[in-house]
Simulated assay, not measured.
Amino acid sequence: MAAGAKTFRDNLALLLRARFPVLYVESYEEARVLAEIVSVASDQSLMRTVRPVYVWSATRGFVGPQGAAVPKTTDPRQAVEWVMRQESAGVFVMLDLHAYLGDDRRPADPHLVRLLRDVVTALQAGAIGRVLILIAPLLRIPGELEKDVTLVDFPLPAEEEIRAVLDGMIVSNSEGRIRIEVDSVGRERLAKAALGLTLNEATNAFARAMVDDGVLADED
């Protein structure tokens, strides 16, 4: 089941307000997605009630908005069970769960799949706004969950975002050994050339252009 084609912020705010229980964002850009989720969840112009964001990884378990780790949540089963026990509104983001949801060579963890089906029921039935969001670079949704998980499209960075990264790199290198010989037209051309890349890929491309010959010029 896929959400409609609005902006990511608008789509996410709508799905949070409508209390869709489980969302899935396929993206390599964890940091960008997380930043948008936190921004939307805390924006009173979009949300009737702002919600704290908890983030889970396989290495740390759930970590709260203030950076405190939640004990005994590194195991994904325990993490999902913890989400179901929460009695206040919140957005619960899980980063690495796709690794436990199977692929062409191995099946998904059946206990975890059952827990995810249970969490759908629990979050829908509760009187408070809670949502579980999975962020993963790969789309892995077991067949049992296909009708319960809503896919949310997250676009690659726009030209303005790429230009901001480029401008920041130029400022940070302007006093160093890199010669900056690119004007505003050249910056626009470089930003357009990086469309279709992630921010990390664009950053690496600009960095390579700078260190290749020690100059960032219009012809790069």
Rank of each mutant, 00 (worst) to 15 (best):
residue 30 E to P: 05
residue 40 V to N: 02
residue 18 A to M: 06
residue 179 R to V: 06
residue 164 A to M: 04
residue 143 G to N: 13
residue 79 A to M: 05
residue 18 A to R: 14
residue 17 R to G: 02
residue 147 K to D: 13
residue 32 R to D: 09
residue 17 R to F: 03
residue 126 G to D: 15
residue 126 G to A: 13
residue 106 R to M: 10
residue 175 E to S: 11
residue 71 P to G: 06
residue 71 P to Q: 05
residue 188 E to M: 12
residue 146 E to T: 12
residue 205 A to N: 09
residue 77 R to F: 10
residue 69 A to Y: 01
residue 19 R to L: 03
residue 157 P to F: 01
residue 216 L to Y: 00
residue 211 V to M: 03
residue 175 E to R: 14
residue 169 M to H: 01
residue 63 V to W: 02
residue 136 A to E: 10
residue 160 E to L: 11
residue 120 V to Y: 14
residue 106 R to T: 09
residue 175 E to A: 11
residue 50 V to G: 06
residue 86 Q to S: 13
residue 176 G to D: 03
residue 77 R to N: 10
residue 129 G to K: 03
residue 139 L to H: 15
residue 59 T to R: 14
residue 99 A to N: 13
residue 44 Q to P: 02
residue 56 W to Q: 04
residue 193 A to N: 10
residue 89 A to H: 02
residue 67 G to V: 05
residue 113 V to Q: 08
residue 141 I to S: 15
residue 69 A to N: 02
residue 105 R to G: 15
residue 29 E to M: 14
residue 188 E to R: 15
residue 208 R to F: 09
residue 209 A to K: 12
residue 67 G to C: 06
residue 72 K to F: 12
residue 80 V to A: 12
residue 213 D to Y: 10
residue 12 L to Y: 08
residue 23 L to N: 05
residue 3 A to I: 06
residue 147 K to I: 05
residue 218 D to W: 09
residue 180 I to G: 00
residue 52 P to N: 00
residue 86 Q to K: 15
residue 113 V to S: 10
residue 137 P to H: 07
residue 151 L to N: 13
residue 197 L to H: 12
residue 169 M to F: 01
residue 15 L to P: 06
residue 66 Q to T: 07
residue 30 E to W: 10
residue 22 V to L: 13
residue 14 L to R: 13
residue 92 F to V: 04
residue 8 F to Q: 06
residue 158 A to E: 08
residue 132 L to F: 07
residue 38 V to W: 07
residue 154 F to M: 07
residue 94 M to F: 09
residue 85 R to D: 14
residue 218 D to Q: 10
residue 46 L to T: 05
